[in-house]
Design a binder for these strands. Sequence first.
DNA 1: CTGAAAGCGCTTACAG
DNA 2: CTGAAAGCGCTTACAG
Lengths: 348, 348
Amino acid sequence: MRSRTAAPPPRPVTRKRRGKQAVTVHDVAKIAGVSIITVSRALNNPSVVSPETLARVQAAVAKTSYVPNLMAGGLRSARSRLVVALVPTIITPLFASAIDALTRSLEAEGYQLMVGQIGYSHSREDRLLEAIIGRRPDGIVLTGVMHSEQGRKRLIASGIPVVETWDFTQTPIDMLVGFSHDAVGYQVCEYLAGRGRKRLALIGADDERAKRRKEGFLRAAKKLGLREPLVHFVAAPATHASGREGLAEVLKKHADIDAVFGSSDTVAMGVMTEARARGIAVPKSLAVIGFGDVDFSASLEPALSTVRIDGAELGRIAAQFIVESAEGTRVKKRVVDIGFEIVERAST
Amino acid sequence: MRSRTAAPPPRPVTRKRRGKQAVTVHDVAKIAGVSIITVSRALNNPSVVSPETLARVQAAVAKTSYVPNLMAGGLRSARSRLVVALVPTIITPLFASAIDALTRSLEAEGYQLMVGQIGYSHSREDRLLEAIIGRRPDGIVLTGVMHSEQGRKRLIASGIPVVETWDFTQTPIDMLVGFSHDAVGYQVCEYLAGRGRKRLALIGADDERAKRRKEGFLRAAKKLGLREPLVHFVAAPATHASGREGLAEVLKKHADIDAVFGSSDTVAMGVMTEARARGIAVPKSLAVIGFGDVDFSASLEPALSTVRIDGAELGRIAAQFIVESAEGTRVKKRVVDIGFEIVERAST
DNA sequence: CTGAAAGCGCTTACAG
DNA sequence: CTGAAAGCGCTTACAG
């Protein structure tokens, strides 16, 4: 007995338990015959406890099916080990390989990725951001989202490391891994011109990045002395149907269009479908190129030319940025351009 | 001064702050001139505080950009207000509308949805489950995943409410909203037979649900006196390319196949692509029907017949199950069959 | 309508 | 290598 007048009261046996879940460090410690801090160390830093102690703790963990409460750990350590990725919608096949690589890379370092869909509208953004910041993630990865000034301010104010991806902006919030959409547009135009195409059109979504591709595309066309390309934009997200309608609209204005750059492979597929329905031969009469090189692009008939981004590499770099920031390492190179590649297939 | 020998020491002014983030209830309370519990009430239960107090707290919150730490709140209240949805992969368009409805319904009740991808392999399942249970979510929604016995046991042991979706099993873990895949297979077979098709094939992924559709499909074929349908299954997830290859393989065995049921609309699209490449007319020589009624199905050429599931309704019901469980309401009807609908379009 | 105290389940110093 | 105490930032009783 120490200097306190009374021993601390034992933990009440009657405390509420939510089902069988509420196994705590205390239960494990008791069974293993050690203190709670030793249980914590055995789990988080096993090399500093003796082999026998480790074994006893592990046996107790197994016996009780103990799963540490990460809210408690995160609260005390100010390290949630949670990373949130924000995407426009959960289904965009474009981001699949990047999200996948991000998940795996973070997992290898002991972090978990959770995905939140922010939608293309800005209305829910504020509430969602609050809910996310409230969880105190160790990092946030933005994938093709968040361009409201208020949202940006809120993120900066939160002090949470932020990695923007799939883009290359002049004013990154924090860290960035992406590529220049302007350059994509420019080079795709050059590529189509190099294949002998002269009367171009651009079809797809009106999101920020597509708009920047448009600018590069139009600039290149001007420089190359081509007729100004027709632009048909619809509200994001653009679909297969958008591609079909887009081609129909574009042909109304100029029946002589000989090449289309779609804002995604899905849109480009829609363009090809509409062309076929109208008896327009691809690529003979109309060249079609997409963006993203997704799952189905290579196996379409004709196979779809497209722009490929190394999503896996992008995901790995984003993970590295987050982990280094969370570990307190100074991330030196905070902006990475991963480039892109034009993939030539039968459709052009 | 009360009976303690010394006043509690003031909160140290030097405590570490992570950036500007570490605004706490204490900071807000100080500025508003109230106690921390009043701040908590103003935020969570505003009707019980006086209008003037409420206004002062709200002003202080705005001034400090305070975002409550949900880890702390969740730890104390044993209510994380977090729901986790587990999907095979983040991109499956099939689940998009359900995830979307789930997100919105939960949000309306003050819960957040986070999506975790479990993959089709079972190798990462255990670690992922531990990471999820560790966050103490108020509910878990399973979407076309989790059939390892160990995983099921672990979930049951956790005591967390679980809703299984997109399926109708004999032994639900807890709650369930789905439909019978066996019935889908049976009725699709009847439908194709009703359209005069006699030599059927099934192409797609080998996941649990597709296998059950197969069983219904084969049973119906037998009952109707049709030749036993050819089955070509590939490892999940099946792609557009799987559909192309599948048709090629099936035709090697029986060149006279006159109808194909794909395990997803993407697979069915691949089947149509391969048919076109081979000069096989759809639907004249070959009827094709898919599963899921996704985004692009209606705008393909020919438009794709398919099986539609009301994903939005499914998502809403799943959200209701979780919220009622979390609020302590006894959920009476714990199993809901939402059925399905065969959508006839040009491809059949 | 408002507040002081206690405690959720961990991990961080600090000590030995 | 191991442990007792303190505290992360909230919310829950309990009291007035």
